[in-house]
Design a protein around this nucleic acid. Structure first.
Lengths: 342, 342
DNA sequence: CCCGGCCCTGAATGCGCTTTCAGTAAGCGC
DNA sequence: GCGCTTACTGAAAGCGCATTCAGGGCCGGG
């Protein structure tokens, strides 16, 4: 943007016939004779003066806008978590700005860098980290000076690498619980719709599910695991592939609800009934799955609370010497998309 | 945030044993002897230097982060439009930050003010404006100096008041087309689920629908219009109220798909079948409605394109003397949620 | 061999604001 | 009435950086 001519504090001061210092004080509520203060305020109003946030920040004032970085705001999962963040932020008189990385590590770092450069008071990272330690190290390197400079960081669902305050959904335990629940329904042959292997969440959920099955003597064939992006269409595609191959499983576990929604659509388009022909289960419990027909069995995560907790962590000083970690959620909710195998 | 000690350009310059000016040039790609440049880059890397965006902006550089303000990012409507914005922004090497106002005019102004203070290169406003001219005037006053200062603004779905480049969904015409389509199916008694009357979109859609019915000699009783927030639960609640009163309409038109989803849920919970007992139609064509059972009849808006066009408007200079206005969408898509009345 | 010109570097300036520091006028006690 | 504190105000410094301006090597041409 080409700043053509901006109204500056100096203009206001001149218009009010006071010094620059007095104008600044009047605008910031520091003690100034009421008479002068009114004059300054009037002049500012009249000139449509807006303080330059950059100059202000440079001169030492702090902002009230925190940054939230997630994979994709249009994904209901992130939308819900972000909603929680905003609720708490709103209560604390903070503004929130959201960014979507579309799971591109470089973009993620670009946003962190920007927020850091802007000296945002806090940065929240929402969503799975990357398996590739190179990226996590790069991110850590970007975050470190920010933290040293007094910035506050909290993450949701990103563990392993980043040594900051964290809110962790019970991915592994939740997936294991789902495995037990599905076994209990009588299923023995499963298929899994999985996401990008570069995400740690994928490894956790898949691992938790597979390990629990193994304990029960059920093994998951490689051909029963199909990968797709963590989107509705990704789920649709993965399910279609599975169907094309000839589906032998009686139950499909999608690593996210969003994928499960796509899977249900594919099943329906293929003339199969859920849960009569195939049972389907998801993970996350996004609000939309209750309106599905049939409603989706899933592993419930308190999405909103995840965000709230993260914002709270970022807002409160960590007095201890270790990073704080909150684990939440992971309860199985059985709905009508899964049937008892008779 | 308390800046304790930050690595500054001066530190880098000292470490590389060059002048501050040279360090600045090296980092910004201006001509510098390769030898020195490498030394500076190495020093910067080693010190984990991040330029202070505020100082940089203050000194005249321009940012590459545009701001997008919408009512609620977790609403699929806005998520889709924002997706379009981000696509175009990404192509132009711009970062995007999103803000949710939750339909609070004050918060909207606060975000504009912040973005303006930060001298963001562009601000996009997504979503209906407010009927109360007071707010629109306040917003206009906030925007005016920003525009004068060279800022670029584009809006989606907000007309009447704001005199800036706009992308307008065909709300009125779309609702009218829907009225015709439903009449053609044989319906004569309608109910409407409407949103907050303070939004201009509500007036447009409701007006378009009602006027078209009137042309066909069908009048909409006041008691057949129920108001609720533009959310899934809002639709659920409004529909429930309608049912409690004793529904006489054969067809329910919800002003947004999100409300329609809630309405379908309420109908189902009430033991009624869509479309056998009641037909339901929505507006927007958000992606989720295709996965509904039955899929929703609605007025299709090219949501992604709405956002893309807005970003393009903001990116291209308006050479003419009038503001540019693009009208888009408004086609009726008949799906299975509406039945022919026999 | 000397001088003009070019390219690169460093010193210095200013972006708009907050804040310290010093200065002035008013208010108080003795 | 005088000295001293109190209460504001104004001048000025400096936040970190981009950039202009001037100075100093170096090369080529005369």
């Amino acid at each position: 943007m080409q700043p053509r001519t901006h109204v500056t504090l100096e203009d206001v001061a001149r218009a009010a016939d006071v010094s620059l210092a007095t104008a600044s004080r009047a605008l910031n509520g520091t003690r100034v004779t009421p008479h002068l203060r009114d004059r300054v305020l009037a002049a500012a109003e009249q000139l449509a003066y807006t303080p330059n946030a950059h100059a202000r920040a440079l001169a030492g004032a702090s902002h009230r806008t925190v940054g939230v970085i997630c994979h994709d705001v249009s994904d209901p999962y992130f939308a819900a978590v972000a909603g929680g963040v905003m609720r708490v932020a709103g209560d604390n008189d903070l503004l929130v700005m959201l960014a979507s990385t579309f799971r591109d590590p470089e973009r993620e770092i670009a946003y962190v860098s920007m927020l850091r450069a802007e000296r945002a008071p806090a940065i929240l990272l929402i969503g799975s980290g990357f398996e590739d330690p190179r990226w996590e190290r790069a991110l850590e390197a970007e975050l470190k000076p920010y933290l040293d400079g007094g910035g506050r960081v909290a993450v949701v669902s990103r563990h392993r690498s980043l040594r900051v305050d964290s809110v962790l959904p019970e991915n592994r335990a939740g997936a294991a619980a789902m495995a037990r629940a599905l076994l209990e329904l009588g299923h023995r042959r499963f298929a899994v719709l999985t996401g990008p292997p570069m995400l740690t969440t994928v490894a956790d959920r898949l691992g938790g599910f597979r390990d629990e099955l193994k304990k029960a003597g059920v093994t998951l064939a490689v051909t029963d695991i199909v990968e797709g992006p963590f989107t509705r269409d990704g789920g649709y595609g993965a399910m279609s592939e599975l169907l094309a191959r000839g589906l032998e499983a009686t139950c499909v576990f999608a690593l996210t609800d969003v994928m499960a929604i796509g899977a249900c659509a594919a099943l329906r388009d293929h003339g199969l009934s859920v849960p009569n022909d195939v049972s389907v289960a998801g993970f996350d419990d996004i609000p939309a799955v209750r309106d599905l027909t049939p409603p989706l069995t899933t592993v419930a995560l308190p999405l909103q609370q995840l965000g709230e907790k993260a914002m709270e962590l970022a807002l409160t000083e960590n007095t201890g010497r270790r990073r704080r970690i909150h684990r939440m959620g992971g309860e199985v909710v059985i709905r009508a998309s899964t049937a008892k195998l008779t």
